[in-house]
């Protein structure tokens, strides 16, 4: 079960992180090249992002002072593990996209409580293979080369 907690820390932490993000991004906009006055057509490339960043920072400050703490669900272990699996997928996909997809799908299914081998094989093997050939034949999509896809592409 999810547990509710009065997470007072996130009340100021999130707006503060937003303000830090805005400050860093604003600095980044100061590094943009500028256009000579004579060639300028209305605005400099940094003008518009800077206006948006100032707006975001101002609103984050408003939240910082006005927002009331609200009870928040604690992250379930399964959510954290699912996030871990997503990170694992991004690493595996570097080796082979469909290897990553298959392992991720089967692991996710198992993590979420599926114990039947047939169901795990369906999610981790049958579906990725079907989707691969569906996109390959119907949409003529060429997937990135990898350990498994090379078997088909040669």
């Amino acid at each position: 079960m999810n547990k509710l907690s009065m997470n007072d820390k996130s009340r100021w932490l999130v707006p503060l992180l937003i303000c830090i993000f805005c400050a860093l991004t604003y600095w980044q906009t100061t590094q943009f090249e500028t256009v000579p006055e004579i060639l300028k057509r209305g605005t400099q490339p940094s003008d518009f992002p800077q206006m948006v960043l100032v707006l975001i920072a101002a609103l984050a400050m408003l939240i910082l002072f006005k927002d009331r703490p609200k009870p928040m669900m604690k992250l379930e272990p399964k959510v954290l593990k699912t996030m871990g699996l997503l990170v694992g997928f991004t690493l595996l996909a570097e080796i082979d996209l469909f290897l990553g997809l298959g392992i991720f799908a089967a692991s996710l299914s198992y993590l979420w409580g599926e114990k039947r081998i047939i169901a795990l094989l369906f999610a981790g093997v049958v579906v990725p293979i079907l989707i691969f050939f569906f996109f390959d034949f119907i949409f003529e999509i060429r997937f990135p080369k990898g350990i498994l896809t090379n078997i088909w592409y040669g």
Binding site: L97, L101, A106, L108, W112, A119, I131, R142
Partner: peptide, 28 residues
């Protein structure tokens, strides 16, 4: 079952993200 549906939705999501420009950058 959610434990079958969402892995399948994820595979569709990733392949869909890749397919448009055939770019792994879009997957990230």
């Amino acid at each position: 079952p959610t434990q079958i549906l969402w892995p399948v939705v994820f595979i569709f999501s990733i392949v869909g993200a890749y397919a448009l420009d055939q770019s792994m950058f879009d997957v990230w």
